[in-house]
């Protein structure tokens, strides 16, 4: 599904990614771990088309097409989703209106019939319940005045609404207490489909207790330096990153 080959990326002239290779197949969950500054969030930014990130070398194929040629909205419509590390507050734009436009833009792109108002409301209620998002938040402005946990839950709610093919969760666990973490992780697990894949970017192993990865990658200094099964996460938790980075 996703194929990243020798990806190099600069941000304002600073080389951040220095040859990332990654293969993700449908149905898989990949975890990317690593110390601060390793380039994990940069990878998420490049995959979703954030401006200011210059790809200097390498390529990214998503379902057989060159992903990097597309705008952020085109990537989203093709099924790429990013759960933001820092979700943005947008005063004056209601969650309901935002999601209605987003869902229908994506459906239009995929030649699906647009949702009627009642279908849409029904879907919002179902998905909010699935991720434990209080339904009153749906009537508020996007993330405005949401607590840290509510913002992260709202990201997973949006993921549930948009049903992406590839979901990238950028530090979705940061700032969550253990109950919120479990709800978010269960939501992600329930949203898994045989034809979708998930990339979980995280510092800590604890999220991976709930979202069990097929492959764990360690990123350091702009490269993936080790890939192994889920037991690698536990090893990292007890030994830290030092032994890998310095070896």
């Amino acid at each position: 599904m996703l194929s990243i080959r020798n990806l190099h990326t600069s941000v304002y002239g600073n080389k951040i990614l220095k040859g990332v290779n990654l293969e993700v197949k449908a149905g898989e969950v990949h975890a990317i771990m690593g110390p601060n500054g390793a380039g994990k969030s940069t990878l998420a930014a490049v995959l979703t088309g954030r401006s200011g990130y210059e790809v200097t070398q390498g390529e990214v194929f998503f379902e057989g097409t060159d992903l990097l040629q597309f705008s952020p909205e085109e990537r989203a419509r093709k099924g790429v989703f990013l759960s933001f590390q820092y979700p943005v507050e947008i005063p004056g734009v209601s969650m309901a209106n935002f999601m209605k436009i987003a869902v229908n833009e994506q459906r239009k792109y995929r030649n699906l019939p647009l949702l009627t108002a009642s279908e849409f409301l029904k879907r919002m209620r179902e998905k909010a319940e699935l991720v434990g998002l209080e339904s009153s938040l749906i009537n508020r402005s996007v993330n405005e005045g949401f607590s840290g946990g509510e913002k992260k839950r709202n990201e997973i709610f949006q993921m549930a609404m948009l049903e992406p093919t590839l979901a990238i969760l950028d530090e979705t666990d940061s700032g969550l207490d253990i109950d919120a973490l479990r709800i978010v992780a269960n939501g992600v697990t329930m949203l898994k489909r045989p034809d979708s894949a998930t990339i979980v970017i995280t510092h800590y192993q604890r999220l991976l207790d709930y979202i069990v990865p097929d492959v764990v990658h360690v990123m350091a200094d702009g490269c993936i330096i080790k890939s192994a099964g889920k037991e690698l996460a536990l090893e990292l938790e007890s030994k830290g990153y030092e032994w890998l980075v310095n070896s």
Binding site: E73, V88, V93, I101, A102
Partner: peptide, 20 residues
């Protein structure tokens, strides 16, 4: 960028923010 990352076109995203 947040709006675009959900599939909303750039012109539409700017319009939504202006409207707000």
């Amino acid at each position: 960028f947040y709006l675009r990352s959900r599939g909303i076109g750039e012109a539409e995203a700017r319009k939504i923010l202006l409207q707000a």
